Amino acid sequence: MPAEDYDIEDQGDLQYVVRLSDGEEDVETWFRLTPSVLEQLGVESGDEADLVAETVDFMKKHQDVPDFPDMVEIEDVLATYPDYEAAVTRRR
């Protein structure tokens, strides 16, 4: 579930827009998922927004909100952070 400092909106086609705030700056970031990454991470149909929320929480531990990119491809997060897959699959 989304935290108090961000909002997640389903845009269809496995794309989500997330509006975040660090208390000083507001940021809008798009998250794009693919069927293959959902399968790899064990995400069931209907739980995609939960994965986005888990990814936002994970990324906030690694970078400041104003530094979030405009577009986040979950495959890129998997490739960049070796601990990402374990972090988001542990909760399932």
Rank of each mutant, 00 (worst) to 15 (best):
L78I: 13
G42H: 08
D76C: 02
Q11I: 07
V17N: 05
R91F: 05
F58R: 12
D76T: 13
L20G: 07
E85Q: 13
A3N: 11
H62K: 15
S36L: 14
M1E: 08
D70A: 14
E85C: 01
G23L: 04
Q15C: 09
Q11C: 12
P82I: 04
A53M: 11
S36T: 15
E9I: 11
D50A: 15
K61E: 15
A3R: 14
A3Y: 02
L51F: 13
E24W: 06
R92E: 06
D83I: 02
Y81P: 00
E54K: 14
G12Q: 04
E75A: 13
S45T: 15
T89A: 03
E9R: 14
I74F: 10
A86C: 00
D5T: 10
R90M: 07
K61V: 08
I8V: 15
G23F: 03
T89L: 04
T29R: 00
D13I: 00
R91G: 00
P69Y: 03
S36E: 15
D10G: 05
D22L: 02
R19E: 05
I8Y: 13
P69F: 01
G42R: 04
R19T: 09
P35H: 07
G42P: 05
Q15E: 09
P69T: 02
Y16S: 04
Y16N: 05
L51R: 08
A53F: 09
E4I: 08
D64Q: 14
L41E: 09
Y84V: 01
R91D: 07
V18D: 00
S45C: 09
R92M: 09
A87E: 07
V27E: 06
T34K: 04
E39Y: 11
T55D: 01
T34Y: 06
T34M: 03
S36V: 15
L78M: 12
L14Y: 12
E44D: 15
T55W: 02
I8E: 11
M1H: 08
Q40K: 15
V72T: 04
V65H: 04
Y6S: 03
L78N: 02
I8R: 11
D26G: 03
V43R: 07
A53H: 07
T29S: 06
P69M: 02
Y16C: 10
E24G: 06
P82F: 09
Q11L: 15
S21M: 06
P2F: 05
F58E: 09
L51D: 04
T34H: 07
D7Y: 12
S45D: 15
T55K: 01
A53W: 07
R92N: 12
D64C: 07
K61G: 10
F68I: 10
R92F: 06
K60G: 08
V56S: 00
V65A: 05
E4Y: 09
Q15A: 09
Y16K: 07
T89F: 03
I74Y: 07
Y6L: 03
L78A: 01
K60A: 14
W30E: 14
G23H: 05
V52R: 03
V56I: 11
T80H: 02
A3W: 02
A49H: 15
V52M: 11
E85W: 00
A49N: 13
E39S: 14
D7I: 12
G42M: 06
M59V: 10
I74K: 03
R91V: 10
R92G: 12
D76N: 11
I74S: 06
A53E: 04
D47V: 06
R32E: 12
V88S: 02
E73L: 13
S21D: 05
E24I: 05
Q15K: 10
